[in-house]
């Protein structure tokens, strides 16, 4: 990959930038697709909760001396499935959930200190890297792994697209027509967990909410057609990612994760300004 990079002109000639562009595109596409369903199902705060879990999982892994990504994915997928199991039996309470996640975040701070005091100055920055991402720090191998995992998430979402859409818009009718609504819900949450782990590597666990929610919200503002909104959400997420990376390359004092989230937020705000929003009566009034 490095050899290809050297042959390319401009910013792409730098291997670190090329890795960021490749991994970033795959991660953003997965986030855009998953985000579309998160917004459709009004489950954006699952993403918020998983961000906290990702932080604690990653730092627990670091403190234990294993690969950061192991803890990251284990924590996000397990917590996602746990939320799914709790969420269905009675409406989960925001105070109970908030308290649990505040404690999980506190535990993350504990692991952070444990890791930081066990090593040098580089370890002390680990918390910031997990919280706010370090996409320019991805090695070739990490970038390929991230891209492959993200591509697998995209493939899985596309495979269950039709039944998942049906189950999200009208769970009761979908269940009556033989769609396995409950199983789909768990599959979806597991995919959200994997995506949260992926997005943590790109924009960080605190900011992944922006990458999940903003492109999807923009797309749903601009079109009512589910397939079109789904594609648009993925395209917008990739555009946000690439635009943010380019902006951060042009202005090195601007961190890439800020640039990505700021661009996504700006596009969402623009969609509010221009898009004549036709509210889907069924989905938005379901709550």
């Amino acid at each position: 990959m490095t050899g290809v990079g050297l042959a390319l002109p401009g910013a792409l000639g730098h291997p670190f930038f090329l890795h960021a562009v490749l991994a970033g595109a795959a991660i953003a596409a997965a986030s855009g697709m998953i985000g579309y369903f998160l917004v459709l199902r009004a489950q954006v705060f699952t993403g918020d909760a998983l961000g906290h879990a990702a932080f604690t999982g990653a730092l627990a892994a670091l403190a234990d001396g294993v690969d950061l990504r192991l803890g990251l994915f284990a924590a996000t997928v397990v917590i996602a499935l746990l939320l799914g199991a709790l969420g269905r039996s009675g409406r989960a309470d925001d105070i109970a959930i908030g308290s649990v996640f505040a404690w999980i975040t506190g535990l993350g701070a504990f692991f952070l200190t444990m890791y930081a005091t066990s090593g040098g100055a580089d370890n002390a920055g680990a918390g910031v890297r997990v919280l706010f991402g370090s996409i320019f720090g991805l090695s070739a191998k990490q970038a390929v792994t991230a891209a492959v995992v993200a591509a697998a998430v995209c493939g899985a979402v596309l495979a269950v697209f039709r039944p998942l859409l049906f189950a999200s818009v009208d769970p009761a009718v979908a269940a009556a027509r033989g769609v396995p609504v409950r199983v789909l819900g768990f599959v979806f949450l597991a995919l959200v967990g994997v995506t949260a782990g992926e997005a943590t590597q790109a924009v960080g666990s605190l900011l992944l909410l922006g990458l999940l929610a903003a492109p999807a919200g923009t797309a749903q503002r601009l079109t009512d057609n589910p397939a079109r909104a789904f594609v648009l959400s993925a395209v917008l997420a990739v555009a946000d990612m690439w635009g943010g990376l380019a902006a951060s390359y042009a202005l090195p004092s601007m961190p890439p994760s800020f640039a990505v989230v700021a661009l996504a937020t700006a596009l969402y705000a623009a969609a509010f300004a221009v898009g004549p929003y036709r509210r889907r009566t069924a989905a938005s009034r379901a709550g």
């Binding site: 917004v39 459709l40 199902r41 009004a42 489950q43 954006v44 705060f45 993403g47 918020d48 925001d94 706010f132 605190l206 900011l207 992944l208 909410l209 922006g210 990458l211 999940l212 929610a213 903003a214 999807a216 919200g217 749903q220 503002r221 994760s257 800020f258 989230v261 700021a262 996504a264 937020t265 969402y268 989905a283 938005s284 009034r285 379901a286 709550g287």
Partner: peptide, 19 residues
């Protein structure tokens, strides 16, 4: 906390502030 769009707005605003 209400429908999907409002959670999307709130989530985006939060992420933007932290960014």
């Amino acid at each position: 906390e209400a429908g999907g769009e409002e959670t999307a707005v709130t989530g985006t605003v939060q992420a933007f502030l932290l960014a």
